[in-house]
């Protein structure tokens, strides 16, 4: 054969062999001894690397899990996307019991839609909630409500939250939400909350975070909690889940029994639920309009109070 071809083949072959041997030796010499369980646990995890567990990615979490297993306690560890199924599998593999965690989901606690809280001005600037929030009050006048520029949408790795074009508010697709908490962290106004999904997916929450006085809030938003306290009164005694503080009602998800009694009671419709609430006894049919009438009257009286 032509030596012109032979020589390169020969020389390159030697180089390749040399390189292979060196690589092999180096790999041997610098091998990091790692707990094989880390990889095994990693395989059990969903591999989303969402960071919802509070560790840097699934690998970081699995290292932490193995570490904790050596100390004999897996309490407090939770993989939000995997849920308790994943965690119990991990527990089984590591031979330890895992807390049964309730499944959770993110909820948006602002009802200031385009219709209920009309835009009072036109914001012209970068479409980032963080910037808009840091620099001014927001286009609809509510200093605590949703800015609606979609930082939560950008940060969601699971495509589970979207801005509804009509209302201008973010909406969570519960089926996709893994409650990793990324949106909770990014929201500059702390509107999004991770709440338990509830039994049979029944859950109730106050869709407002505004702590201003009722009259002040109502000027900007027709869907805001005005802190009237009606819901607090109607809440069954044994539950006692609703508390009004700083003109804002909050439903404790741990105590709420999802009876839905408070929902028709709210004059502004600020309490939302994932199920059909029971109709109010007295004004069953025109319930909503009646509720709104009440709201209107209330606001008027509130206004008068302020004027005086």
């Amino acid at each position: 054969m032509n030596p012109l071809i032979l020589y390169p083949v020969f020389i390159l072959g030697i180089v390749a062999a040399g390189a292979a041997v060196t690589l092999f030796l180096v790999a041997k010499k610098f091998k990091v001894d790692e707990d094989p369980r880390i990889d095994e646990v990693l395989d059990l995890l969903p591999g989303a690397n969402c960071g919802g567990c509070g560790y840097p990615g699934c690998r970081g979490f699995s290292e932490a899990l193995v570490d904790a297993a050596d100390n004999g306690d897996l309490a407090g560890f939770m993989c939000p996307p995997g849920g308790s199924d994943t965690m119990s599998e991990v527990g089984r593999y590591l031979g330890l019991d895992v807390d049964e965690a309730e499944p959770t989901a993110a909820v948006v606690r602002c009802g200031g839609s385009r219709q209920k809280a009309p835009q009072q001005l036109h914001y012209d600037g970068p479409a980032k909630c963080a910037i808009s929030h840091a620099l001014f009050r927001g286009a609809n006048g509510c200093p605590l409500g949703c800015v609606g520029l979609g930082d939560c949408v950008d940060v969601c790795d699971f495509d589970a939250i979207h801005i509804n074009r009509e209302t201008g508010l973010p909406e969570v697709e519960t089926e996709k939400c893994v409650s990793c908490g990324a949106c909770v962290e990014v929201c500059p106004r702390e509107i999004i909350e991770i709440r338990p999904r509830g039994r049979k997916d029944r859950r109730v929450w106050v869709c407002c975070v505004n702590k201003e006085k009722g009259a002040v809030v109502r000027k900007n938003c027709k869907a805001a909690c005005i802190g009237c306290g009606k819901c607090e009164k109607v809440c069954p005694e044994k539950a006692g889940a609703i508390r009004v503080e700083n003109f804002l009602a909050y439903i404790d998800p741990e105590k709420c029994i999802a009876c839905g009694l408070c929902i028709p009671e709210c004059p502004t419709g600020a309490i939302l639920a994932t199920f059909q609430p029971p109709k109010k006894k007295s004004r069953a049919a025109p319930g909503k309009t009646a509720a709104e009438k009440v709201a209107g009257k209330k606001v008027e009286t509130a206004k008068e109070e302020v004027k005086q």
Binding site: Q120, L121, Y123, G125, F136
Partner: peptide
Amino acid sequence: KQLTVSLS
């Protein structure tokens, strides 16, 4: 109707 608000 609506004034524009932007940053300097």
